[in-house]
């Protein structure tokens, strides 16, 4: 009862309130209240994530698992960040309320928190994603093989887009006049055609497919047909 039925009812109720609000403006207040809770819980999820990280790493350290020293580094940076961020170390006072320290702004590099953001978090996240540039190049070399008509279509399109997105496309095809029936082979026009006709229709079909899938899943959840989402306990 407490573990299965009530959660199921809560799920259905919150889902139905949202759907109802779509059709009747009277219930918008209810749906906004529920969405407000949803947003707060999304915030709590960040806390939960941090808590999980803490638990995992503490366990790693106490059990002296391999790599526990790295776990200690993770914990130390977590702790340090938390302390400076909760206390707003070095925050710039709020011009309207300079007497309330915690009302200050800690997003500039003047404060410890802003400094860590600017010179630790930001370069690290950015570089992590920049690594993908290397991997994409390696994949282009290893995996892009023209073996059949499908892969030739894929490769050919990629080629055209790669050329047309940079000055090379214009350089190669600018000699073709712009207003003839064959001018569609100019790189920029070819790119427009690929993007607006082929890619748009392909993605549109995918979107329609996903929309149907999402709608079906949502309905199954709300109507209580699919209970797997709540089975964790």
């Amino acid at each position: 009862m407490l573990q299965r039925t009530i959660p199921m009812l809560i799920l259905s109720a919150s889902g139905l309130i949202l759907i109802l609000a779509y059709f009747s403006p009277v219930t918008v207040v209810w749906s906004d209240t529920v969405v407000g809770w949803f947003n707060i819980l999304a915030g709590v999820a960040f806390v939960l994530g941090a808590g999980n990280l803490l638990a995992v790493n503490l366990e790693k350290i106490s059990a002296r698992r391999p790599g526990w020293a790295y776990a200690a580094i993770t914990l130390a940076s977590f702790g340090a960040m938390l302390v400076v961020g909760l206390g707003k170390w070095g925050a710039v006072p709020n011009p309207s309320f300079p007497d309330v320290h915690l009302a200050g702004d800690q997003d500039s590099t003047q404060s410890a928190y802003g400094w860590v953001y600017e010179y630790v978090l930001s370069p690290l996240t950015a570089t992590m994603f920049a690594m993908l540039a290397f991997y994409v190049a390696s994949a282009a070399f290893r995996a892009f093989r023209a073996k059949n008509i499908e892969s030739i279509l894929l490769l050919g399109t990629a080629f055209i887009i790669l050329l047309a997105q940079v000055a090379a496309g214009a350089f190669l095809t600018n000699w073709i006049p712009e207003d003839r029936w064959y001018s569609f082979v100019r790189a920029e026009q070819l790119k427009e055609i690929i993007l607006n006709v082929f890619q748009t229709s392909g993605m549109r079909a995918i979107l329609i497919g996903i929309a149907l899938g999402t709608a079906a899943t949502s309905l199954r959840l709300i109507l209580g047909i699919d209970r797997s989402a709540l089975s964790k306990g």
Binding site: P7, I19, Y22, L221, A229
Partner: peptide, 27 residues
């Protein structure tokens, strides 16, 4: 699981109408 039910229910409710409208009918 209770708060999770709120999250999933709200999410499903939001998504249902939004995707049908923006991604199905409009497309």
């Amino acid at each position: 699981v209770w708060p999770l039910a709120v999250v999933i229910g709200t999410f499903a409710g939001m998504r249902l109408t939004a995707t049908i409208e923006a991604d199905f009918m409009a497309q």
